[in-house]
């Protein structure tokens, strides 16, 4: 670690080393059948395989929730920590380890409720990592309580007569934060789009925030089924600098809007579409945003003599 520079992420693989999909798969996922997390897991494993990420150089950090079990199903390093606290842990991991590929797995309660403060600041820190917000609009693990992203009127165990507040729009909220550098949205049931989004996110030099609209067949079937089935429910945000789908894949969508991801005001406008349709694609990207991980790594590997020298010269100030 000592001599690593921030650009060491693209470390060359040892000759002959090749990782197959199975090299990333750990124990069988224990999510419910039909849960959107399964397809996301497949897509993430595919990304690791496509990018040939060395498993030992890859860390999945999560909070608590159904979605946050994710690291257990990867054969990489993982950190399944506390509810709402994946962001600070992931930032701490990345701070002095520019060579590690860091992923954050978080749920809508985890990110937008208990962890909301960390979410705001993680966006501002803009450390290179991929953040996957598994947004099923409900608290899954604790059995159907209203989430901050539950649509207004959602019937849940805490609001049997329907939820009484409008939801947070995580895309809009993230686009409102300082130093935001990558905001994308996709859905778990469109694998081509999901794969392309993850790839784009991984290649981003900063924090890539990806909200994945996720099916919860147990608690939210009524809410997602229409969206999943209705070809009009999704609008693709298309641009050569955005999530690029091949023509065949793009043709499968009825609604395609051109959207330039360099324009943050347009991005915020596009985020408002959510009321009528689910926009998917890259809302915004800025590759130049300040990165706190570069600051964190700037003095890695300072020689022991220099370290002792600095401490001694501070001590000189107290010398008598």
């Amino acid at each position: 670690m000592i001599a690593l520079q921030p650009d060491f992420c693209d470390i060359a693989l040892p000759e002959g080393e090749h990782y197959s999909i199975e090299d990333y798969a750990s124990s069988k996922a224990r999510w419910c059948s039909g849960c959107g997390a399964h397809t996301i897991l497949n897509s993430v494993q595919k990304l690791c395989n496509d990018k040939q990420l060395p498993p030992e150089k890859t860390v999945f950090v999560s909070g608590i929730g159904c979605s946050s079990r994710f690291p257990h199903y990867m054969k990489t390093y993982g950190f399944h920590g506390l509810h709402g606290r994946a962001f600070p842990v992931a930032c701490g991991v990345k701070f002095r380890r520019p060579d590690l590929n860091v992923f954050v797995i978080t749920g809508d309660g985890d990110c937008c409720s208990i962890g909301a403060g960390h979410w705001v600041h993680a966006i501002r820190y803009n450390m290179k990592m991929v953040v996957l917000l598994f947004d099923n609009a409900i608290y899954g693990l604790t059995k159907k309580q209203t989430s901050p992203t539950s649509p207004f009127g959602t019937v849940s165990n805490t609001h049997p007569a329907g939820s009484v507040l409008p939801p947070i729009n995580p895309i809009q909220a993230t686009l409102g934060l300082p130093n935001v550098s990558f905001v994308a949205q996709t859905v778990d049931w469109k694998p081509a789009h999901l794969n392309a989004t993850l790839k784009k996110a991984f290649d981003h030099p900063g924090l890539a925030f990806v909200r994945i609209v996720q099916r919860c067949p147990i608690w939210m079937r009524d809410s997602y089924e229409p969206t999943v089935k209705d070809p009009d429910a999704i609008t693709v945000l298309n641009h050569e600098n955005g999530i690029v789908l091949d023509e065949k894949a793009l043709k499968k969508f009825r609604h395609v809007n051109e959207h330039d991801p360099s324009d943050i005001l347009k991005a915020r406008e596009a985020a408002e579409m959510v009321k009528e349709t689910t926009p998917i694609g890259l809302f915004y990207q800025n590759k130049e945003a300040i990165r706190y991980d570069e600051y964190g790594a700037h003095n890695l590997g300072t020689a022991v003599e220099d370290r002792i020298g600095a401490i001694n010269s501070m001590m000189d100030r107290y010398a008598i």
């Binding site: 606290r85 600070p88 842990v89 701490g92 701070f95 590690l100 960390h118």
Partner: peptide, 18 residues
């Protein structure tokens, strides 16, 4: 950090990874 929870979380992340 943004608060004490994040401060220790960050320290734990750094310790875990180094």
């Amino acid at each position: 950090a943004e608060d004490e929870i994040a401060a220790i979380g960050f320290a734990i992340g750094a310790s875990y990874a180094g």
